[in-house]
Structures are given as structure tokens and as C-alpha cells.
Write a protein that binds this DNA or RNA. Sequence first.
DNA 1: GCTATCAAAAATGTATACATTGTCTTTGAC
DNA 2: GTCAAAGACAATGTATACATTTTTGATAGC
Lengths: 242, 242
Amino acid sequence: MSRQRSDEPSSTRYEAVVEKLRAAVLAGEFAPGERLHEVRLTGRLGVSRTPVRAALQKLASEGLLDYTPNRGYTMREFSVGEVVSAYEVRAVLEGLAARLTAERGLSEHDRAVMVQALHDGDDLLQHWQFSDEHRSAYGRMNASFHETIHAAAGSRLLTDMVFLCQQVPVSSPRNVVAFEEKDVRRRHDDHHRIFEAIIGREPWRAEVLMRDHVTSVKSSLVRSLSSPDAVRRLLDRVQARS
Amino acid sequence: MSRQRSDEPSSTRYEAVVEKLRAAVLAGEFAPGERLHEVRLTGRLGVSRTPVRAALQKLASEGLLDYTPNRGYTMREFSVGEVVSAYEVRAVLEGLAARLTAERGLSEHDRAVMVQALHDGDDLLQHWQFSDEHRSAYGRMNASFHETIHAAAGSRLLTDMVFLCQQVPVSSPRNVVAFEEKDVRRRHDDHHRIFEAIIGREPWRAEVLMRDHVTSVKSSLVRSLSSPDAVRRLLDRVQARS
DNA sequence: GCTATCAAAAATGTATACATTGTCTTTGAC
DNA sequence: GTCAAAGACAATGTATACATTTTTGATAGC
């Protein structure tokens, strides 16, 4: 498992196909249960079956596709329940990551990165606006904060699993977008406290805080799913994501 | 992801190769960092490169091998720290599974399976002996108990992740073997309490009990690793496992 | 003796032909 | 008209040839 830096250009066709297919899948270009025929994809992607097969296998191993021997790959269906439980899994995993990081302590570099993320967040919240640019900057800051903790926990298995959680559609950290300003402010305040707990070497506190931090995202999601038009909006966003 | 029943005969060469290679890897036939050349494996396994490549990719996705583009697959190195953290991850995941199962409740069938497992465990402990047969029966009972809870939690992501934890060498549930009778008895008593908490619909209690249950296995492991000859014994077992 | 460079060898990446399996349609019997 | 069996078609599984990249080792230069 264990992915390489995604900003590096892919050195093989196989990797390029993985990225293209993943984007297509997340953009909702395949209906749940739909088969992904190897030959058709070859035409569309301009490569032979070999890299396509490898890419399909990888996406299946990430949980995006189903595979049955001699019958190929089909688009997986993600029920609301699966998305919710992905957040539940993420909550306990990120809680564990925070605990382990608090136990091990932060390197000087990681500490600086987190301080920067907290500072950037403070700034962004002070000049709050609804532009895409602003939201994407917030998303980057948020990802930086969380990823630093995952890495600092020092467990590759844990890092990989958090990645798998985020592969489930709609449960990417970028989805802060869907929620209200008040929730975002509260969550950024969580970040400050989590950092405090890690710096203060309080493993148990770090775990509880992080766990509830992620769980609150789940709650926001569930709440917004209770109004029917919110469901539609959310699904639209997933479908349209390119 | 999501594996099929392992007792079914594999319908493709690829699946057969996955099982053979996994066994070879777990048997310690490859040194950490050693490259697994496709062509050599072809000769050894009697199939062409195509199924071998697919199998290597699958084992890499399970975390057993490392992959670098244009450079192939290498045997991964598992430090003691990685094994320990695999248990830590498993502890929070199985704790979550127990909580979710306690929330959702057990089906009549699952309940019967767990009652059977508890009963079998009681029997086995009453007629304790050190035979391989006895230990393997205990391992089956233990797996049945835990797997029923994983499945009852109703989250495929969670099930798959617990599976991944168990792929880490030395962290398979069958390794009860290495520990003392007293520990085994205590752990079976944990099972009774966990079952009680699930039946009584006490999610929080089920989670805490399960989490500590798995953590205690980690502790036994760490303890047995503190004596040097125990380390050697353990490594021998891993190397010799066929 | 060490390092750098380049060529040969070997390994992985890719395309494609063939084999096997699954699926669908047609045909036949009841 | 319905069902079943057989065959044609299409999709996946496998082998293999070729392309590209990495690795190795030998040679030249310092």
C-alpha cells in the first residue's frame, strides 16, 4: 500500500490510469453496480488492457470497486450507512493517532508545521468569506494539520488506514465546505486544544479530543442529511466533483 | 477488497498464486528487503508473469510487500514497533466493532454462534492440554467469536481493516499459543463479559471491554518480548510457520 | 586504488494473441 | 408459451513478445 507523493508525475501508464479512473469514479461517471469493462476503458484511456487491469485491481483494493473472479469489476455502492461508519472508523483511528503522537512527542519540524496550520486557520477565520479559493485554502490547512499527526504517530498501518477511510466518497476532509461557519470555528478551536494536548504530552486527552473532533463532522453530516434537499445537494456535489 | 471464503477452491491461477505466495512470505522464505523477482517466481510457481504480477500487487495492497514503480516488489520489514502498533490499531477497531454491534443488536443466528463459541471455550478450558489439536480448536473458537462481532457491526470498511491488521506477521489471532494458561483463561472470561455487554445493549461497556481485551494480547506480547530467548522462540515460530 | 562512464544484461512495463469462462440468443422439445 | 440445451458472442484469464528502465560490471581515466 503506502502511496507516493501525489504531486509527482506518474512514471508508468498504470499510475496515470489509476489517477484518471479514480477521478472518473469520484466524479460519479459510473452508476453503482455498473460494470467497468476492461476493453471499453482501453479505448477511452488510450492504453492496453494490461495497465487498465492493474489500475482496476488497485482501485478495488482501495475499496472503490468490487471484484469477482471471471466477472470483472463493478462500481461499488456506498450507502449513507457506509459513509457514516467510515467517519466512525476514522474517529477511532485519528483518536489513536493523536494519542500515539502525544506519547511520542513532536519533532521540531512537525511542531512548526502544526503551529503554521493553526496560524493559517486563525487568519482564514478572521477574514471569513465564501469563495472557493478561501475554502480550498482552509481545506489544505486542515489536511496539513491532520496529516502531520498521522505521520507523527509513526505507524504505517495507521496512516494507510486513515487514507482508506478518506477514499470513501463524501468522507474526504475537503468536505468542510458543506457545513456552517459556526461549526468550522468550533472545529478550528478543537485543533488548538488537540495541539495543546499533544504538546503537553496528555495522550488520553489528545485521543478523546480528536475522537470527538472527527465525530462532530459525522454529526454535521448526519444532521445535514436529515433535510431532503440537503441530501440532494450533497449527492450533486459528489456527482459533479472533477 | 473484501475477501471470499478461503475454503473455496480458487477458480483462477492468480488466486492460487496469491495463497501460495502469502504462505511463503509468512513462512519467512524471503528476507526483509529481499526482492521478489517476477521471472524467478514464474519458474517456481509454474505460471506466467501475468498472474504472478497480479498476486504481488495484491500482497502489496495487503501491506506484506513494498512496491516501487520500475523496481518491483520487495519483502517488507516488520519491526517490533510495527507489530505492536498493529495491535493498538486492532484494539480500537475491534472496540468500535463491539460498540456498533451492541448498538445494533445481534441476530438470532449470530447470537447462537457466539453462545456456541463461549460454550466451546468453556469446554476447552475445562480439559486444558498442550496438544496442537487442542490449541488449534481454541484458535478456531476465538476466531469465530471475534469474526461474528466484526460482521455484526455491519461495516465492510471495518471488517476489511481488521483483516489488514491480522495480515501483519505475528499478529494473527492464532498466536494465543505463545501465552500462558492463566492469560488464556482471563481472556476467555473477557469473552463472556463482552457477550454480556452486547446482549445487554451496553455499547460503551462493550467497547471498553473489547479494547482492553485486545490490548492485553499486545501486553502479553510485549512482556514475552522482554526476555531475549522469548524473542528468539517467537521469531523461530514465524520463520518455521508453514 | 577509486570513481565515472558506458555498454550489456536483466528486470519491469506494455501490448497483444490466445485460452477459458460467462452471457445471451436461438432453437428445439414438451 | 415456457423451459432447457446448445452454440455464438463477448468478457476476463493467461501467456508471451516487445519496449523501457534499472542494474551490473567492465573499462577508462584520474
